[in-house]
């Protein structure tokens, strides 16, 4: 049995009396401890898919099973990192993390929660900033806190919706490597569903890449990423295999777009 099974998921939206299909018959499965990236151009429904996994939205048709059980609403088995607004602006970094811990572990005392929170803030390199409010932190630091919270909650599954999408290139690289390190070194490894539109990010982090296509949102390809772990970005990007795999992925990505706009004439 797979950790997460997505079965024939369809989502229709109705907006101003017009309905459109965000997801149509999406099915794939994710194994325990697997890092899966969902990539695709904007409008392919990747964020909609994640919102159903999070339990915020409900599908029109189909279902998602976690450990064989159909999900209904949000649950403490899933930790979430959004692109924006994951943190509560009125709580300090430490309180944000401790608040997350409290929701999954009601029995922990305040000092125990703070201790765990400090430990995880330490892991993401923010021990000096634990008493700062989100408005006093940079975008990259805020995402570090959000990651620390998701990890501190110690859920089986991590759902990440373009967590580094709004971060500048340099910090994005640093955060990707931080996430990779934290995930690879954890035992047991968490099951991660990671939504992105950055192909390099997806290759570096994932075991499997699910490529989606728009109008309506469907699964276009599922690809295993054939590189050994632990991965090192600078070594990896120099290998022939990496470049071959990346080019293959890029051509798939663009051929999909080319199909959409009318095939051969489009030069990219």
């Amino acid at each position: 049995m797979s950790k997460i099974e997505i079965n024939h998921l369809t989502v229709d939206y109705t907006e101003k009396k017009k309905s459109f299909t965000a997801l149509k018959d999406v099915s794939f499965s994710i194994e325990e401890g697997e890092f899966v990236s969902v990539i695709g151009s904007s409008g392919c429904g990747k964020s909609t898919l994640l919102s159903i996994l999070e339990g915020i939205n409900t599908p029109t048709d189909g279902e998602i099973l976690i450990n064989g059980e159909k999900i209904r609403g949000t649950g403490t088995d899933r930790g979430v990192v959004f692109q924006h607004y994951s943190l509560f602006p009125w709580m300090t970094a430490r309180k944000n993390v401790a608040f997350g811990i409290k929701q999954v572990n009601h029995s922990a005392s305040r000092s125990e929660r703070y201790k765990i929170a400090d430990e995880f803030l330490d892991k993401v390199g923010l021990e000096q900033f634990k008493n700062k409010y989100p408005s006093q932190l940079s975008g990259g630091m805020q995402q570090r806190v959000a990651i620390a919270r998701a990890l501190a909650m110690d859920t089986d599954i991590l759902l990440m919706d373009e967590p580094f999408g709004a971060i500048d290139a340099k910090n994005r690289t640093i955060l990707q490597e931080l996430l990779l390190e934290l995930w690879e070194n954890a035992t047991p490894r968490k099951t991660v569903v990671f939504v992105t539109h950055d192909i390099d990010e997806a290759i570096l982090l994932s075991d499997k890449i699910v490529m989606m296509t728009a109008n309506p949102g469907r699964v276009y390809r599922e690809l295993k990423v054939p590189f050994d772990r632990p991965r090192n970005r600078s070594e990896l990007v120099q290998t022939k295999e990496y470049n071959k795999f990346r080019n293959n992925l890029l051509s798939l990505f663009y051929s999909d777009i080319a199909d959409k706009i009318g095939g051969e004439e489009v030069v990219l």
């Binding site: 999070e54 915020i56 949000t74 959004f82 509560f88």
Partner: peptide, 29 residues
């Protein structure tokens, strides 16, 4: 209160009381 704020509380699976007094209250202060 922004939907995003409510969503980030929902995904933490907060109870109704916590939602009202620890999230909605400070957000609308």
């Amino acid at each position: 209160v922004e939907k995003k704020t409510i969503d980030s509380a929902k995904v933490l699976n907060v109870g109704k009381f916590t939602m009202l007094f620890s999230v909605i209250l400070p957000a609308s202060l």
